[in-house]
Structures are given as C-alpha cells and as structure tokens.
Design a protein around this nucleic acid. Sequence first.
DNA 1: CGGAGCGTTGAGCAACGTCAAAAGACGTGG
DNA 2: CCACGTCTTTTGACGTTGCTCAACGCTCCG
Lengths: 249, 249
Amino acid sequence: MKTSVAVRRAGMVRHLTQPQFDQLSGICSEIREVEARATIAREHVDQERSLLLLDGMIGRYVTDVHGERRRLVALQVPGDFVDLHSFPLTRLDHEVITMTDVQIAVVPHAAIRQAISHSPDLGRTLWALTMIDASIHRHWAYRVSAMRAMERLANFLSEIAVRLEQTERLTATGYDLPLTQPDMGEACGMTAVHVNRSLRDLREDGCCTIQSGHVHIHDRARLEKVGGFDPFYLYLPQDPAVPEGAEAP
Amino acid sequence: MKTSVAVRRAGMVRHLTQPQFDQLSGICSEIREVEARATIAREHVDQERSLLLLDGMIGRYVTDVHGERRRLVALQVPGDFVDLHSFPLTRLDHEVITMTDVQIAVVPHAAIRQAISHSPDLGRTLWALTMIDASIHRHWAYRVSAMRAMERLANFLSEIAVRLEQTERLTATGYDLPLTQPDMGEACGMTAVHVNRSLRDLREDGCCTIQSGHVHIHDRARLEKVGGFDPFYLYLPQDPAVPEGAEAP
DNA sequence: CGGAGCGTTGAGCAACGTCAAAAGACGTGG
DNA sequence: CCACGTCTTTTGACGTTGCTCAACGCTCCG
C-alpha cells in the first residue's frame, strides 16, 4: 500500500481540524500518481470522486466552444482539494490537467456524503474550502480585468508564493514553479511574448527572476507592492504555525 | 408582516425541491427592501445572515487596496442567493451593493446551520448553489481574460438574458438592465467610452440595442454567436418548466 | 437655473498582440 | 557521440485594440 506516504495536514486542508483531517484521510480510497500534462477530468463529465492534491501542481482550464482559446482559471498547489466542487455539482464545467507529475488522494463522493451526514461541521468546513476557491476565482477575475501585464504577473507570483509558503515549499531563494511562459500567459491573460517582456521588467525592477522553473525572489515586499498584493482573499488558516514550520516573519 | 409578498421558487433557487424551498422560506427571518446603490455588506466584515434576492439586481465588487479601481465580479438576479457563501466563510472578501431598489429575504446563518444538521441533502443543494456561483466566476474570469470587447459584451448580455429568462423577466423585446455604461465597463473590464463604442458595434451588427435601461434583443442567436455563448456553465435546472412559465423552445 | 452624471463622438497615444527569427535546452534515435 | 526535432526563451519590427483626454448635448434633480 502507498498509504505510507505522508498525507500531511498542510496547505488549505489546514482549515480542517486534526480530527476532521483524520476522518477525511480515513475515507480516502487510494493514493494515485499521475504524470505531467495529463487530463484528469473533462468538462461536462460526471464525477464520482474528488481529488486531494498531495504533491505537484494541477491546473483548471476553461475552453471556448471550439477548443481553440483556453485559459487557466485556477492553479492548485499541495493541500488543495482540486475538484471538491464536483461533489455538490456532479459534472464539471472545465478541465482538470496536471502541470507536473502529481500525487493525489482519491476521495469517493459516496464516502464524503456519508461522512457529512454524520458530521455537519465537516460539511461546513469542506464547503468553506470550496468557497475559498471561489474567492480566489473572484480575484483572478479582478486581476485579469483590472491590472496591467507587469502588475498581473507580480500579483500572480505573489499569490503562489504565499500559497506554497503554507506547505513549506517556499525557500529562502524563492520557489519552484513548473510553468512555461505560455502557461503563465494562459493564467494571466496575455501572450507568451508579453509574459517574457513583463518578466524582464520584473527582473530589471529587482523583484524576481525566473530561471529553469525556479522563481528567485529578490525582494518580496517589492514584488507584492508592484502587484498590489493583499492576501486577505486567500483566507489563510489562523493557526499559530505550521507543525514543523519554517515561517518567515 | 411583509411575508405576504410572493417568495416564488424561480431562478437559481429552482435547484431546491419544493419541500426544500418551503423549508428555506420557513427560516427566513424577514423580508427587507433596500434602495438602489446602497452597500449591503462590506469586505472583511463578519456576516451572520445571508440574503436571497427576490427582486432587483445586486452587484458584488472587488476593490484594490486603495479603493481606487473596482470591478464587478458578480451580478445577482432574482432567485439568486446573493451571499450564501458568507455562511461557510463568515467574513467576505468583497462588497455587496444594490444596483436597483431591491427586495431581499434575510436568512440567519444560525437557522441555516440548524436546518442543514437535520437535512444533509438541503446542505448539499445549498452548497451546489454556491458552486454554480463559482462556475460563473470562472467564466467571468475567462470572459475578461480571453475575449475582445464586443465579444465580452455580447457574452455578458447573453448570460443575463438566460438568467433573467429563468425568472420570467425576459420578454419578447428583451429585458430591463439597470446598468449604466460605466457599470458595464466595470463588469467587462473596459472603460465606459469603449463600452459605448462596442455597444454601437453590436447595434450596427443587428444584435441588440440598449436604450434607457432596456436591452432590445434584435437577434438573439446572432448575439449569442458573436459572444461565443454556451450556457452550460450556468447549470440551469433541468425541471420541465417554470410553474406558470413562458419559455421559448 | 445650475450641477451632476450619462451617452456620444473625435483625436492621439500607450499597451499589448502578431509575426518572425534565432539561440539555448532537452530528449531521441542513429 | 552526434544529428535532429521539439519546446522554450528571447528579441525586433510592426499593427491594432482599447485607453486617455476632451468636448458637447442630454436628462434628471435640487
């Protein structure tokens, strides 16, 4: 059995209490590994399980009718419940695609349903997780709607930094970001060429440098200022600290 | 008591079964009327009730740190549960502002909590309502990110047409839209000047004309085609028909 | 009657997209 | 090991969308 792999309570699932988290781990049917750039769930297709992301990154894409244009509308990091919304919704309105090799815990909807019926508080907490997801959607909409290219990228990179910080994947130098410039273009609503130029602007501005999949953060405060970043919409858990945390002030 | 006012099961609440809807009506503490352009809920403030919109329109706004830039990230129509997400989230990440004089039903969170603990199915249905909201967020993000001005407006106007159709507020000529051009600019991520020009394009293209708050739809199929509109993301109820419906084929 | 906000139009400009080219990284197969 | 194809990153030149600034008529309201 692969369940020996650490299913740690880090990231967004920290909103669950330890007993709730244990309960959830108990109803997880299996732990699965999927390679990069694979489609995990398609739009319009009924789902009977949800996926908790343990390691790697997963993207959620909205496509136009003809499948030509595509946008990244969400990026999931470890600790995120990737498609928990498929529990109440059943079918999905978008695609779920791995950005990297990932490790995911599979949670059958039937088990969720049963767990919730015995524990309404767990239901409300899971509901809250999906509502934080919705809050992030709102801010992604705001970002692409109201911000300029360089600001958008700075804001995006700041958000990912905070979210990875919650799972101790942020180091002193920065963090790994397995996205190409075309990917960032799909996330921030601009062309790959313009992503490239805007990243150069950020670099020359002393904010950060991206090199071979690693975001070197030179001046985090400056990056967040350029991006007009305020993390309140992430509803970060108010716990005193991550278990064996390495938190920056 | 104002509860004589018809609280009809139309619009998004049609996802509730009639018994569920009756149960919800029962826990509604009051029916309130609020004038246009009034702030109903502020960001960062804890909420202890949610609001079901009975008549009028309500907008949800994300603002930047300094309160200068603002975007409409959601527009609620009758039958929508405006801020049901404040039940699991408690505090809000955005502002809720009336666009028109509105009539709203107030539902205390404590009552929701109690109702759900006795009826997990009601909980799941309410959860689904908020997830449809999230789906709409995703498509608003896609819209402002991937579409051009005229396409964005056509898509936006098509969405509102379908949603108003669900509450029988769509007539043969079109529908009432209590938004100014600056409002539409905040919704679609463009300036009021460009909204004006793009609306002219839509008019000259034979799609629709907006005059004194009424959208005259000349060719709905054309409008939807120009906007690349596909309503699947609205998760419309599959009921055969609205009670005393006037549905188009 | 004056002010404020909305709708409309024009002129000029900045941001961003498109097209194109070339260099580097990487894996594959000969 | 090298040749090759593919993908990514980077840069330049040029085109276009949509923004800014400005003006004017309109309606509504105090």
